[in-house]
Each structure stands twice: as structure tokens, then as C-alpha cells.
């Protein structure tokens, strides 16, 4: 993991604050980023790192914010196959599964 991300996670935990660390755990088909890629989502919606950008990242960010609100870590599957993806010009045509770790 990126040292900078690791430092931010430590700061968040030390201050007793919360956030969600999103990790791509599996991919199928063509996806912009591979397993192990991480993105940190703060409760206000700010993100650090990227899981590929575009609409899929927006969906994942939304799911991460929901997980923070629920206070529960979870997994989620997101697809780049939809019409929205094509409209956005993101036609990688893949599926990513992420683990959302609520810190």
C-alpha cells in the first residue's frame, strides 16, 4: 500500500475518526485497476487514491459512504458493463469486487 495512504489511515485511527478503505479484491474482464488497488473514502466524501475513476468510482464511493454510515465492513460488486458506463466512455467491460473496510 501507498505509504501516504497508510499514514492517513494511522492518523484517522489515532484521532478516533472513521473512514472506509476500499480494496479491489477481484476483477473479471477488462478493468482499469487490478486486485490490491486501494482508495480511502472519508465520511465527508473526500477520496484519496483511485479505483479506476469514472462512474464506477462514484458508485463505489457511494457504497463506501453507506458502509461508514452503517458502521459495517462489507463487500460489493460493481460492473462496467452498463449503459451508463458506455455513455461515460468507460467501456472496459469488466466487473470488480471490492472490500469496503470501515475503519
Amino acid at each position: 500500500m501507498d505509504d501516504q495512504l497508510l499514514r492517513m489511515i494511522n492518523q484517522i485511527l489515532a484521532k478516533g475518526e472513521t473512514a472506509a478503505l476500499v480494496t479491489i479484491i477481484a476483477t473479471r474482464g477488462s478493468t482499469p485497476r487490478k486486485a490490491g488497488t486501494k482508495m480511502l473514502v472519508l465520511p465527508q466524501g473526500e477520496i484519496h487514491g483511485t479505483v479506476g475513476g469514472g462512474c464506477i468510482e462514484a458508485d463505489i464511493r457511494r457504497a463506501a459512504l453507506q458502509a461508514i454510515a452503517d458502521g459495517e465492513s462489507t463487500t460489493g460488486t460493481f460492473t462496467l458493463l452498463g449503459d451508463t458506463a458506455a455513455d461515460e466512455g468507460m467501456v472496459c467491460g469488466g466487473i470488480v469486487e471490492v472490500f469496503i473496510r470501515v475503519l
Binding site: M1, D3, L6, I9, N10, L13, A14, L103
Partner: peptide, 9 residues
Amino acid sequence: TAESYHKLL
């Protein structure tokens, strides 16, 4: 979790 991330850093 905090301990694990501290060690990782």
C-alpha cells in the same frame, strides 16, 4: 485494526 495499521506503517 489500529495496531495492525500502526505496525504496517
